[in-house]
């Protein structure tokens, strides 16, 4: 394989607009999805637990699955996408990362593209527009390869990076003086007794703000060493209700179970 990864620091602004909605799932990948497995959910971006193979997201996995997913190169790409030492390990102030604009976040990243041998530019028509972002402070890597435009792959990679930061970077929580942040309250079911009516309707996984809530929830669970019942008490929910919330989103469920496993607890099912 002549492809090598060229990594280069780029301190340039990335996107003309900042917030960008998640790349829409175009029609055909779902065909591939069904060819692989009919039960996967369309949206979730699944956190990788350092497993090789395409783990960057449902969508990517489907591409891989539909189209010679056993290619060595795809595996190599997949393994770039690793967990930063497990869900509960780091303490980098991830909250603030997520508050950064796309440009600000991009400034903390190294961007790599896939470079083939040869002079590129006008010489070449290869649609090799994969983009790999390495978030320098955390070492988290996100990438996107499935779009035709490098520009869009950059945007998708950045979106994935945000998800991964939420899932993998833990912030310390002071349990003595804890009051749930608004982002967390917003993803709780309405019956939560601490929620208050000013939080508006419950935010679901399709809302980009959902990940902010997920991050806060994981921080709390991590402070309770993975105990759902303890966290539920603080959030004014029954253990069952909080479990259901966790199980409702694949990426959240995986992250919680990874945390629980690291504390010797059984996975939620």
């Amino acid at each position: 394989m002549k492809i090598s990864m060229a990594i280069q620091s780029l301190r340039r602004s990335l996107l003309p607009g900042t917030a960008r909605s998640p790349p829409s799932l175009s029609s055909f990948p779902k065909l591939s999805g069904f060819a692989v497995s009919a039960s996967v959910r369309p949206r979730a971006i699944v956190a990788a637990s350092a497993a090789p193979g395409w783990r960057t997201g449902e969508r990517t996995r489907r591409w891989g699955g539909f189209c010679s997913g056993n290619s060595e190169h795809d595996k190599a790409l997949g393994s770039c996408f690793y967990s930063n030492g497990g869900a509960a390990s780091s303490n980098y102030g991830g909250c603030s990362y997520l508050e950064l604009s796309d440009e600000g976040l991009m400034k903390q990243c190294e961007m790599g593209t896939f470079k083939t041998s040869g002079p590129g530019g006008q010489h070449r028509n290869k649609r090799e527009s994969a983009v790999r972002l390495k978030h320098i402070p955390t070492g988290i890597i996100a990438q996107a390869v499935e779009d035709r435009s490098q520009h869009k792959n950059r945007a998708s990679a950045l979106l994935r990076l945000r998800t991964l930061l939420a899932l993998k970077v833990r912030n310390a929580v002071n349990l003595e003086a804890y009051s749930p942040p608004k982002e967390l309250l917003q993803i709780l079911p309405l019956k939560s007794t601490v929620r208050g009516s000013d939080c508006g309707p419950q935010i679901g996984p399709n809302n980009p703000k959902f990940m902010l809530g997920v991050q806060a929830l994981l921080d709390l669970l991590s402070a309770f060493e993975g105990s759902v019942s303890e966290a539920a008490k603080l959030l004014g929910l029954s253990t069952g209700a909080l479990s259901r919330l966790i199980l409702s989103d694949d990426s959240l469920r995986l992250a919680v179970n990874e945390l629980r496993a690291s504390k010797g607890l059984k996975p939620l099912k």
């Binding site: 002549k2 189209c67 795809d74 070449r124 499935e146 035709r148």
Partner: peptide
């Protein structure tokens, strides 16, 4: 230095 099967498959999806 043209496309390999992997790239062609991706094009097929597009």
């Amino acid at each position: 230095n043209g496309p390999d099967s992997r790239l062609l498959c991706r094009e097929l999806n597009w």
